[in-house]
């Protein structure tokens, strides 16, 4: 039987929660509510004219084939970023877990990219992959590869996926490493004694025991790829060439901040918010069932 500390009365827990709740209300519920309200209006940017139009903004947004195109780009982008951010992180964590000497040095180095702002990371890679001033870009062209992400949509998408994923690997690495270290050594040793190969130990013992971490990271990474990759796209491709890297988030920015269409961009942000909420619910309801805690 576990010992629990029990507080009497209902006031104290609420009091302790209050600061966090206040922050959530002020910085999340209030703006989210405003977005919902603005999505029902057609306004001029200066707020001098405003007309209540019910769901016309949603109708305009959803009947635009380019919005659906952006949704498709977002899907490819998010799946790829999540995959490429998590798989290498797991591999690195497995290797770092086995390192005995100098392990803290490796870990520190592996965590560094996480401390870089997305826009800075993007510029960094831009200078490496730029077709005319980047080392790798020049190298690729010298080898005869027609590398020019400024006009090749596939290459542009590949590059922003790569940079976005690269930045998130560190974060995933930290959690995977912590997850691996919390797996009791005895279980792994027992499997070894039973004659399981390293691959088999990983597939049948370690990976299932790691599933809570993996699941958590899946949710976090999808949300990351939806919302936090704006800086990368803005710095490298600005949504181009054509619309090859215009994700829903980038489209929203452009409609809201460049086009100053507050109603339309609010409608888009409400849609995006709903999509992420829906996705998270699905993940918790269906995928979580298969997670071993």
């Amino acid at each position: 039987m576990r010992r629990r500390t029990i507080f009497r009365g209902k006031l104290l827990p609420y009091l302790l929660l209050a600061p966090q709740l206040a922050i959530t209300v002020v910085f999340f519920f209030y703006p989210a509510g405003q977005a919902v309200w603005q999505s029902l209006l057609i306004e001029d940017p200066f707020g001098l004219y405003s007309e209540f139009v019910w769901f016309e903004n949603y109708q305009i947004v959803l009947s635009n084939p380019l919005y659906l195109e952006a949704a498709r780009v977002t899907l490819i982008f998010s799946v790829a970023v999540t995959l490429f951010a998590m798989a290498p992180a797991l591999l690195l964590a497995l290797m770092a877990d086995q390192v005995i000497r100098g392990s803290s040095g490796y870990r520190t180095l592996l965590v560094w990219p996480y401390a870089i702002a997305p826009a800075v990371a993007a510029v960094l890679w831009l200078f490496i992959f730029h077709p005319s001033i980047g080392q790798v870009g020049q190298g690729l062209r010298a080898l005869g590869v027609p590398w020019d992400y400024r006009l090749d949509g596939g290459q542009a998408l590949g590059l922003v996926i790569f940079v976005s994923a690269w930045k998130q690997v560190s974060y995933n690495f930290l959690f995977f490493l912590a997850g691996l270290q919390s797996i009791p050594k005895t279980i792994v040793e027992a499997a070894t004694v039973d004659g399981a190969t390293p691959t088999r130990r990983f597939v049948q013992v370690i990976f299932p025991l790691l599933s809570p971490t993996t699941f958590f990271l899946l949710v976090v990474n999808i949300i990351y790829s939806f919302f936090d990759t704006f800086g990368v796209i803005h710095a490298i491709t600005q949504g181009g060439p054509g619309r090859a890297t215009t994700t829903l988030m980038y489209r929203l920015y452009r409609d809201g901040w460049i086009n100053l269409d507050l109603g339309g961009s609010s409608a888009q942000s409400v849609l995006l918010m709903s999509a992420v909420i829906l996705l998270t619910v699905i993940q918790f309801r269906f995928i979580e069932r298969r997670v071993h805690y």
Partner: peptide, 21 residues
């Protein structure tokens, strides 16, 4: 009105032409 957006639209479309699409 919204000239910045129009600039972006034109650039998108000519990029697709340069790409050969």
């Amino acid at each position: 009105g919204n000239l910045p957006q129009i600039r972006a639209i034109i650039e998108e479309e000519i990029e697709l032409a340069f790409e050969g699409q």
